[in-house]
């Protein structure tokens, strides 16, 4: 069986790309990574308005992006981050190839409530180029692992079909009982985020991000880890109705 690298599959999912693309094989991975020169052009177009990078870069609307690889999310002392990004940082999110790819594809799906108002870059090649550019501005770029290929399970079948699954609401209601020990049905948010009334696709994506270990958090990784695609769709359908 041909297994696509997980990172590409998930980024596709996060970007909400619906035309199931022919995913490159693992061997193509290195070539599939981007071109920093094209990345610079994209950076100028999409990021430079808010971020600075390079010598003497300072925090602006967004934090400076020097040495972003392996930097903890929300880790700069002198930048005021959103509660959402700070929370992910506390939980242990660090910027790797995969987490950057996911964040740039759909910032809110990785970090709920992030203050970065950027709608995401759906174009996969564009993200590779951008990340290659960011890598060139990190410490010893050639030594930075793209993340260990075996560290996380591969998900070859996260596809448009998964996103389009029709959720069984009644099943979702039963499954949701496991969640409401912590997440309040009323949508109250006190130390544990509210999950009612989300658009079902965002919900599905967030759950897969935990399931695949992109979002760090032991409780949620465990919870999502034993849910299959149908169950996640069922939960998304049910919780969406609660916010109405």
């Amino acid at each position: 069986m041909i297994q696509a690298p997980r990172v590409l599959a998930l980024a596709t999912l996060l970007a909400g790309a619906f035309a199931a693309p022919a995913l490159p094989q693992a061997a193509d991975r290195a070539e599939a990574l981007g071109d920093p020169a094209r990345g610079l052009a994209l950076y100028r177009r999409d990021c430079a308005f808010c971020h600075q990078i390079g010598e003497e870069a300072q925090n602006a609307v967004g934090p400076h992006l020097n040495r972003i690889f392996d930097r903890g999310a929300g880790a700069l002392e002198d930048f005021r981050y959103s509660a959402g990004l700070a929370r992910m940082g506390d939980d242990g999110l660090t910027w790797t190839y995969e987490t950057l790819d996911a964040y740039l594809a759909n910032p809110r799906a990785l970090v709920s409530g992030t203050r970065m108002s950027y709608r995401g870059l759906r174009d996969e090649q564009g993200r590779h180029d951008l990340i290659a550019f960011l890598r060139a501005n990190s410490d010893q770029p050639q030594n930075i692992p793209e993340s260990a290929p075996t560290a996380l399970p591969r998900q070859p079948d996260l596809s448009a079909e998964v996103l389009a699954l029709e959720g069984d609401e009644e099943y979702g209601e039963y499954l949701a009982a496991e969640c409401t020990t912590c997440h309040q049905r009323s949508g109250a948010d006190a130390g544990i985020p509210a999950i009612v009334g989300w658009p079902p696709q965002d919900f599905v994506v967030a759950m897969h991000a935990y399931k695949q270990g992109l979002r760090p958090h032991p409780v949620m990784q465990m919870m999502a880890g034993r849910l299959d695609d149908e169950q996640i769709a069922a939960l998304a359908a049910y919780f969406a109705t609660l916010g109405e």
Binding site: D90, G92, T180, T181, C182, A188, P218
Partner: peptide
């Protein structure tokens, strides 16, 4: 299963405590 680790940083420990308060409110409502 999972368990917190020895030597975690203070931010994570504080987050964990805040979560427990969220859990208390959540389970009592449930």
């Amino acid at each position: 299963s999972f368990v917190s680790q020895v030597g975690e940083d203070a931010d994570l420990r504080r987050r964990t405590y805040e979560e427990s308060i969220g859990w208390y409110e959540g389970i009592c409502a449930d």
